[in-house]
């Protein structure tokens, strides 16, 4: 069984896809994306993308690392088994000695949060993607400027969406199907 997955529309230039993206944004589509061979400045604005929440995940990761490091060091070396090194006190004044580890663990946990948060946000890893079946789509890694509107978008209509994409200046539109 097959069903429509998305429309893949190809554009000839960065400028063309930039203006098409503005029109798609204004038409109210939500589940769509743009694929270009190189980064296009201002595309996030043209697509109407808001701020990513990844930074929030990173903040949580960093704070977790900060607290973990301080807790582990304080608990083991001040509370559980007071360890005197270089005649330094075992109380709150020891805290500078714990900073390097705290600093490193904050960074480590932030980096983990970036990696795993990003993977979760983009739903990776996965085995395959229906778009990989499209010859037109594959050209985005060469010289194609590709705009994809997915069928799960509430505004998606097979006939209307194709006409709309052509009206934004697409040089070709292809319907990609997925098996289920």
């Amino acid at each position: 069984m097959k069903r429509a997955f998305a429309y893949v529309a190809e554009f000839d230039s960065a400028a063309a896809i930039y203006h098409a993206a503005e029109q798609v944004r204004d038409a109210g589509y939500k589940k769509w994306d743009v694929h270009t061979p190189y980064p296009v400045h201002g595309m996030d604005h043209a697509m109407g993308l808001g701020k990513s929440w990844l930074s929030g995940v990173v903040l949580c990761g960093g704070l977790t690392g900060f607290c973990t490091a301080l807790f582990l060091q304080f608990f083991t070396q001040v509370d559980l088994y007071p360890t005197v090194v270089q005649g330094k006190p075992t109380n709150l004044n020891t805290v500078p000695a714990f900073f390097p580890v705290t600093f490193e663990l904050t960074i480590l946990f932030s980096a983990f949060a970036v990696l795993f948060g990003l993977l979760a946000f983009v739903m990776l890893p996965r085995w395959n993607h229906p778009l990989f079946g499209s010859k037109k789509f594959a050209r985005f890694s060469d010289d194609g400027f590709i705009l994809v509107i997915e069928a799960r978008d509430a505004k998606f209509q097979e006939a209307d969406t194709k006409e709309f994409l052509l009206s934004t200046g697409a040089s070709g539109v292809e319907l990609v199907e997925e098996e289920f």
Binding site: Q86, G87, K88, P96, A97, F99, P100
Partner: peptide, 12 residues
């Protein structure tokens, strides 16, 4: 600033 303080404080 912290590195300067830390190294001096720790080496004593």
């Amino acid at each position: 600033a912290f590195s300067q303080f830390f190294l001096i404080w720790y080496a004593n």
